[in-house]
Amino acid sequence: MRPAPEDVRTVVCAGTGVIGGGWVAYFLARGYDVVAWDPAAGAEERLRHLVDAAWPALTELGLADGADRARLAYEPDLAAACGRADFVQESAPEDLDLKRRLLADIDAVTPEGVVVSSSTSGYGMTDMQTLCTNPGRTVVGHPFNPPYLIPLVEVVGGEQTDADVVSWTADFFRLAGKSVITMDREVPGFIANRLQEALWREALHMVAAGEATVEQIDLSITDGPGLRWPVHGPMLTFHLAGGQGGMAHMLDHFGPSLLSPWTRLVAAELTPELRDAVVDGCDREAAGRSIDDLVAERDRGVIAVLRALGRA
C-alpha cells in the first residue's frame, strides 16, 4: 500500500552521483531515513563526502527536526534497498536503455503502490516506463543541480502513469520543502531546461560568431536580467516592461520585434490566442498586485540580491 505523502519515512535513492547524492543530502536534511544504492565502485565513499560537503549549506538553511547524517544507510543490493522504501528517487545517468532497465528492476523489487520517481533531465516517462510491470506508479520528479539547494522540482507523468501518482508526488515534494511545477503534459527537457537551453544555444552562437565573449555573456545575465528573474521570472518581467499597460501593451507595442534577428531561434507566431493566453497568465500570476506593487516588489528583491552578493 502506498503511504500518504506525510507518512513517508524512508526514501530510497537509486543512483548517487551528483544529482542522486544531492537528493540524499536533501532528504537527510529534511529528517528522512535514506537508503542509498549505487553499483559503481567507490560510490559510498563519494556519496558520504558529498553529503558532508553539502551539510554546512543545509545547516545554514535550517535542518528539519530529526535531521541527521547518521540516518543514511548504504545498501549494495537493489532489492534489499527498495524493499524498505516508502518512496524511490532514481538518479541514474542519462541513458534511455539504462533508465528503462533500472526502472523495471526497481519496479520489480519495490513494495506495491510505492511511487518510483525519476530525476531524468530530459526523457519523458512514457519512453522510460516501457519495461515496467507496474508503470502506473512511475513518474518524473526532475530536480535542479544541486538538488539540496535549488528548490524547484518538475513533476510529470507518462502515458501509463496513474493521475493520482502525479498528484501524490507533487504533494510529497511540497511537504518535503520543494517548489513544485506539476506539468500538464510531457515535453522533452520539461520547462526550465528548455528555457535554459535556449539561452545556452544563443550564447554559443554569439561566441562562435565572435559577437560576444564568454565574460560578456555571463556579465550580461548576472548584472542584467538575471537580477530580476529571482523576483518575477521572465514573464512578469516583461509584464512590467509594458508600463501601466502591462503585458497587453508590451505585446502590442513590441510584438513585431519577435521577427527581428535578435536570436537564432524561430519566433512563435504572435496569434491573438497566444497574446491573450500570455496576458491572462500574467494577470493570474499578479494575483491582484498592481503594476506599482510589482515594481516595488521587484526593486526590493533586486536590492536584496545585490546586497547579498556584496555589490550594493
Rank of each mutant, 00 (worst) to 15 (best):
Thr138Phe: 13
Glu197Met: 15
Leu149Thr: 04
Leu265His: 15
Ser119Gly: 08
Val278Ser: 02
Arg228Cys: 14
Val18Gln: 12
Glu202Cys: 09
Gly246Phe: 06
Ser260Gln: 14
Gly224Asn: 11
Gly210Lys: 03
Leu306Asp: 00
Ser167Gln: 13
Met250Asp: 00
Asp107Asn: 05
Ala287Ile: 02
Leu103Pro: 03
Thr138Pro: 00
Gly177Pro: 06
Phe173Thr: 00
Leu58Glu: 04
Arg289Asp: 13
Phe238Glu: 01
Gly141Glu: 03
Asp105Cys: 05
Gly281Ala: 15
Ala286Thr: 07
Asp292Ile: 00
Leu102Ser: 03
Val109Thr: 04
Ile191Tyr: 03
Pro261His: 12
Val295Trp: 09
Asp276Lys: 12
Asp283Thr: 11
Phe254Asn: 12
Leu274Phe: 05
Asp171Trp: 02
Asn193Tyr: 05
Ile217Ala: 05
Leu195Arg: 08
Pro143Asp: 11
Trp200Pro: 00
Ser121Tyr: 06
Asp184Cys: 00
Phe27His: 12
Val155Ser: 02
Met250Arg: 03
His142Glu: 03
Leu28Tyr: 10
Asp86Ala: 11
Gly177Val: 07
Gln160Thr: 08
Gly22Leu: 04
Val115Trp: 02
Leu251Thr: 10
Thr237Cys: 13
Leu175Glu: 06
Val24Phe: 03
Asp33Pro: 00
Ile291Ser: 03
Ile106Gly: 00
Asp38His: 02
Arg201Met: 10
Val51Leu: 10
Lys99Ser: 08
Arg307Tyr: 01
Asp65Ala: 15
Ala277Ser: 14
Trp229His: 15
Met235Glu: 11
Phe173Leu: 14
Gln216Val: 00
Asp7Val: 05
Phe144Asn: 04
Gly136Trp: 13
Val139Asn: 04
Asp223Tyr: 12
Phe254Trp: 15
Cys82Val: 07
Gly245His: 13
Ala268Arg: 14
Gln196Leu: 13
Gly189Asn: 03
Gly22Tyr: 05
Ala267His: 14
Gly255Ala: 08
Ala267Arg: 09
Ala108Gly: 07
Pro39Asn: 08
Ala73Gln: 13
Phe87Glu: 01
Asp184Asn: 12
Ala4Ser: 14
Ala64Asp: 06
